[in-house]
Design a binder for these strands. Structure first.
Lengths: 162, 162
DNA sequence: AATTTAAGGATATTTTCAATCCACAATTAG
DNA sequence: CTAATTGTGGATTGAAAATATCCTTAAATT
């Protein structure tokens, strides 16, 4: 049970996009080069963000992506779900229904207790991801990345932002 | 990101094994028949439980599986990790290291902030699963399964327990 | 007009999951 | 003792998902 690497890519890309001046865009090409990722495939992750309404896009030269949701409102869960989907990690196949001792057509009012417990853990995971915003991430990065590297990175991005 | 169906199987099997009288075993064959699962493949899940030390096994006719860890101590996390492994759901490929603005050989003291956040959510999931024991599940089932079905099921198992 | 971009479909490759089969050793029942 | 039964572990196969690439299209910029 491992998240797609696209989740990692999307999170890093949103962190970069959060540093973009208002109204500017950054292309897939630049994001791929910055992170050392396959451009064509990264594009799929960015399309997921676009379809989820988390980013705006612009065509043509100087086009690309920018955040649509402000970094102070954009949560990790938004991004993870945009790429990974909103489905639960535990799928209940209701195998209890096969119990040869249950009467025919026996249909529980509530879902399987095992599924309920697994779904509660799943929800705890989501609650945690919903509590962290991209703005929080930027604050953390600001504390641990040396100022000169931070500055250079911002310049690198700015030079390529359309 | 979906858990293997073997996780579901293992949890249901442990619930059944918890109802066994002390010292008795239940075979893969009986567990597979009860849940309507492929015997050979279910066997792999049970082997995982065995390798993790959660169940005892016995060979020959009247052999099979029984809980080694008491139901009051056996947690959902024990079972999930036995089948699914203890690895984290988020794998950090450290793509930040590709940042063309970082100096050569630039090595962070702490892991990537994104990974830390994702791992905290992962840990929240584990904390939740660690808090639920098989005994808790049995208590829940006892409340929602009609007494006659419960009794019939116990008899069905007992008849096949070696 | 030529270039650049995102969007999306088609396809191929690799990995993981699901499932089956078999040989083996240990154990029990008769 | 003998035959049947069971868990273990390895080998193998098929199906599904993740990973990755390629190409066409339409829109926007220069």
């Amino acid at each position: 049970m491992i998240l797609k690497s696209q989740v990692e890519w999307a999170l890093h890309c949103c962190a970069i996009l959060a540093g973009l001046p208002a109204g500017r865009y950054l292309s897939t090409k630049a994001l791929a080069e910055f992170h050392g990722l396959p451009k064509e495939y990264l594009s799929k992750a960015l399309q997921s963000l676009s379809q989820a309404g988390l980013v705006d896009t612009s065509l043509g030269p100087s086009g690309g992506y920018r955040l649509r949701v402000p970094a102070s409102e954009l949560t990790f869960l938004d991004i993870v779900e945009a790429v990974e989907g909103k489905g639960k990690s535990f799928v209940c196949n209701n195998i209890r229904a096969n119990n040869p001792c249950r009467p025919q057509g026996f249909c529980e009012s509530h879902p399987c207790a095992i599924a309920r417990i697994m779904w509660e853990a799943d929800e705890a995971w989501r609650v945690r991801l919903r509590a962290v915003r991209i703005a929080d991430l930027i604050a953390m990065l600001g504390e641990e990345i040396p100022p000169d590297v931070w500055k250079k990175t911002a310049d690198w991005v700015l030079k390529r932002a359309g």
